Simulated assay, not measured.
Amino acid sequence: MTSPSPFRNYGRVIKHFASTRAAEVLALQASPILGTVLGGFNLERSSFIRLGLLLLGSLMLTAHVFVFNDWAGQSSDNRDPRRAVLVFARRGISNRQVVRVATAFLILANVIFAAVGIPAILLGAAIAALSLLYSCSPAFGKSTPIMASTNHLLGGALHFLLGYTLFRPLEAKGLLISLFFGLVFAGGHLNQEVRDYDGDLLTGIRTSAVAFGCRRTFLASLLTFTAAYAMLAALAELGILPRLLLWTMTLWPLHVAWSIRALQHGLGFETAVWMQRRYRFLFACIGLVMLVR
Rank of each mutant, 00 (worst) to 15 (best):
215 R>H: 09
195 R>G: 14
200 D>C: 12
190 L>V: 12
246 L>S: 08
244 L>C: 07
198 D>M: 08
261 R>P: 10
233 A>H: 03
249 M>K: 01
211 A>N: 07
163 G>I: 12
152 H>A: 13
262 A>E: 12
212 F>G: 10
206 R>K: 15
204 G>S: 10
172 A>S: 14
173 K>N: 14
250 T>W: 01
195 R>N: 09
271 T>D: 06
187 G>K: 11
167 F>W: 05
161 L>A: 11
204 G>P: 05
176 L>Q: 08
280 R>H: 12
263 L>S: 11
258 W>V: 02
282 L>G: 11
225 F>Y: 09
247 W>K: 10
248 T>D: 07
233 A>M: 14
258 W>T: 09
201 L>E: 14
252 W>F: 08
158 L>S: 03
182 G>Y: 00
258 W>C: 10
270 E>A: 01
244 L>H: 06
222 L>M: 11
280 R>T: 14
254 L>D: 04
204 G>L: 09
177 I>D: 02
211 A>F: 00
248 T>P: 09
274 W>A: 15
171 E>D: 15
260 I>L: 12
247 W>V: 14
274 W>F: 01
229 Y>C: 11
197 Y>R: 06
213 G>H: 08
278 R>W: 05
213 G>E: 13
202 L>V: 12
252 W>E: 03
185 F>W: 15
183 L>M: 02
244 L>Q: 04
230 A>K: 05
213 G>T: 09
187 G>W: 03
191 N>R: 11
261 R>M: 04
274 W>P: 08
189 H>E: 12
273 V>D: 12
273 V>I: 09
175 L>R: 14
216 R>Q: 13
190 L>R: 07
227 A>G: 06
257 A>I: 13
166 L>D: 02
168 R>E: 15
231 M>C: 12
180 F>M: 04
170 L>C: 14
167 F>I: 13
154 L>W: 00
235 L>R: 00
204 G>W: 13
188 G>K: 02
158 L>A: 12
238 L>A: 15
203 T>D: 05
154 L>D: 05
192 Q>M: 10
239 G>P: 04
192 Q>R: 10
268 G>R: 04
258 W>G: 10
209 A>V: 10
195 R>V: 06
244 L>V: 15
220 A>F: 05
225 F>S: 06
272 A>M: 06
200 D>F: 01
281 F>N: 05
235 L>G: 05
246 L>Q: 13
270 E>N: 09
217 T>I: 00
249 M>Y: 13
170 L>H: 04
280 R>D: 06
254 L>Q: 14
230 A>M: 09
188 G>F: 10
274 W>G: 03
203 T>K: 00
165 T>C: 03
253 P>I: 07
246 L>T: 08
227 A>F: 05
192 Q>D: 11
232 L>F: 01
211 A>H: 06
239 G>V: 14
153 L>P: 07
243 R>V: 15
184 V>I: 02
197 Y>I: 03
274 W>L: 13
280 R>Y: 02
272 A>S: 12
212 F>C: 09
179 L>A: 15
202 L>N: 02
225 F>C: 02
277 R>E: 14
273 V>T: 03
176 L>D: 09
207 T>D: 08
224 T>P: 00
238 L>C: 15
152 H>I: 10
195 R>A: 07
245 L>K: 06
158 L>C: 07
260 I>M: 08
170 L>V: 07
259 S>I: 07
175 L>G: 13
227 A>W: 06
161 L>R: 08
223 L>T: 04
279 Y>D: 15
258 W>S: 03
166 L>H: 06
170 L>Q: 00
